Each structure stands twice: as C-alpha cells, then as structure tokens.
Amino acid sequence: MPIYAPTLPPAPDLHLGQPPVLVLMRFDFTRLWRQKIGRFFGFAFLMLLLWKVARIYVDHLLHTNEAFKPMQDFAKTILTQGADFQADLLNPASYLLWFLVALVGGGLVARDTLYRVRPLMYAHPVAPKDYLLAKLGFASLLPFTILLPFAILPWLMSLLLAGFHGPVWATAPLRLLPAMAIASALMGSLAVGASSMAATPRAGIGWVLGLVLGASTLASMIHGLTGIAAVDALNPIMLAEAWPQLFVGVERPMVAWLPAFLGTALHIALWTFVAAKRTRPSEAVI
C-alpha cells in the first residue's frame, strides 16, 4: 500500500494580529501592573501630584479672597508664577522617577537573558529590531505616562480657577510635553542599554543606578576641576531636569541648549547602540 506524505496545514498569515512590538510592550505593561512595586510608587507620585494641584488652589485663594490680602506679599516670594514655576511642575518627581526607571527598566532585557527566552522570540516572527523597539518604547513610555498628569492636571486646575490668567501658563503643556518626551527617551535608552549588559534583573538595577550616578559624579568632578559648565551635559539627571527649563525659557537653566542637545543625543545613541549589539541573535544565549 503506497505511503502518501501527510497533508500540511496552510501557512499562517503573519500579517494578521497585532505587530510584535505592541505585543511585547503590552506584555511588559501587564507584568508591571501585577507587581506590588507599582502601588508604592503610584502612591508617592499621587501625593506629589496632589501637592501640585493644591498649590494651584492656594495661589488662587490668595489672589481672590479678601481675607488673605495681608498674606499676598508674603506668598509672592514663595508661590512664584514665572518660568521657574512652570518648569518646577515636573521636578519633584525627578529623582523618584529615576529610581522607578532603574527598578523596572533594569530587568527588561536582563530577565529575558536570564531565562533565555530571546531565542524563542527570534524563532517566531519577532525580529531583533522589533524586540529592541518594544523594550525602548516601554522604557520610554513609562516615565512619560507618569509625568503626563504633572503637566496636564495643574494646567487644567489653573484654567478652571482663573482662566488664561492663572498661575500655569496657557501654553505650558505645549512646552512641557516635548521636554517630557526627550527626557523620557533619555531615561528609556539608558535603562535598556544598562539592562542589556546585565545577566539578572538585580544586576540590571545596579547597572542603571551605577551608570546614572557614575555619570553624574564624573560630570560634577570634571566641572569642579575645569570650571567648564558644559560638562554637566554628561549628567543624565541634570539633563532630564534641564529640558523643561529650556522649553519654558528659564533665565539660567542647568544646562544650555547646545550642550543639552549634544549630551542627550550622545546618551540616547550610545545606549541604543549598546542595547542593539547586546540583543543580537548571537548574544541571545550567555
């Protein structure tokens, strides 16, 4: 009796379903949502946000309520409404946000390296560039999502209370959103690049904190020895705080426009290059 070859099912259409980048990002967001670490940081950021919104309301009372007339002169020295106030809407969450990026971003690539799952991903229709874009997108979108309420809610409160003459400029979101995007891209690329050099998530956290604090210390030492202020552009913490100041027009920002642009471009290009090299198929297994 002749033996016939088995009938194979039709090849699946790889164009159906969501792109691999979105699937990987959704998986990382789901894993973060189930972790208890998000509750602590969520509460901390919520308290900072409530303080910002309450400050807008107190400023409105001081300018409209007759009972607070004697306190207006004193309040002007505390509740400034210039460019420094607009940039300060994002600053209270700066160091805490860097710590969150280290805790979350340190394990993005290192966890896959530890459990050796990248070969399985690359065996499916997931290209190395899709994997890299998913990790960079998640690591950059996380700080942007956290900072977004700090730019929008105080602005809405100011509009509701005092219209276009409130303490928050009417054009503040247009200035703060680009600054947030650049700072978030800086945080995301550094976190993914550091995580790609680690073998475990805990080591990835150490890599992120080490690179951030090490670059900050190095920039401070060179600045102190040479007196060149442009060297501060190597400090990622200072760069993240300087971009809102630059976009709102602070008189004396931490870093000037050109050094900030060059320093940010250097960090993003360097750590993206490192992550791309460390997530190649040949590097998928230690």
Rank of each mutant, 00 (worst) to 15 (best):
H223P: 00
A194G: 10
P20W: 11
W33Q: 01
M187C: 00
M221H: 02
A229G: 07
M121E: 15
V212R: 02
R175F: 13
L159E: 07
A183V: 09
L61M: 12
Q72L: 13
D28V: 05
E251T: 14
A199Y: 09
M121T: 11
K135P: 05
F85H: 13
G227T: 02
L120D: 13
V231T: 05
A5S: 13
L16K: 15
L186N: 03
F40W: 00
A75N: 03
V109I: 14
R34E: 11
I152W: 04
W155K: 05
F68M: 07
F68L: 14
L262Q: 00
A183N: 01
P236T: 12
L32G: 04
G249F: 10
W155T: 05
L136T: 03
R118S: 15
S282K: 15
L32R: 01
M25L: 03
V23C: 07
N65H: 14
A275H: 08
P20C: 09
A229H: 10
F29N: 01
L142N: 04
P154K: 01
R278S: 08
A265S: 07
V285C: 12
A93S: 05
P281E: 07
L49S: 01
A199S: 12
I78D: 06
A198G: 02
L148T: 04
G249L: 04
F27W: 14
S216F: 09
I286T: 12
T171M: 10
T64K: 03
G38H: 00
F247I: 06
E283W: 12
V21G: 06
W257Y: 14
Q72P: 08
P143E: 03
L161F: 13
W207R: 08
L100P: 00
W33K: 01
A194R: 05
T7P: 03
V274L: 13
A233V: 05
P10S: 11
F43W: 02
V23I: 13
K76Y: 05
I237A: 03
L97Q: 03
I286S: 10
D88R: 10
F85N: 02
L133I: 15
F27N: 12
V255G: 00
I222K: 06
S216E: 09
T272A: 00
H60F: 14
I205Q: 02
Y57S: 10
V23S: 13
K76A: 13
L211D: 01
Q81K: 12
T226Y: 07
G105K: 08
G106L: 07
E241I: 14
G17I: 11
L49T: 11
R202V: 06
S216K: 09
E283K: 14
K129D: 11
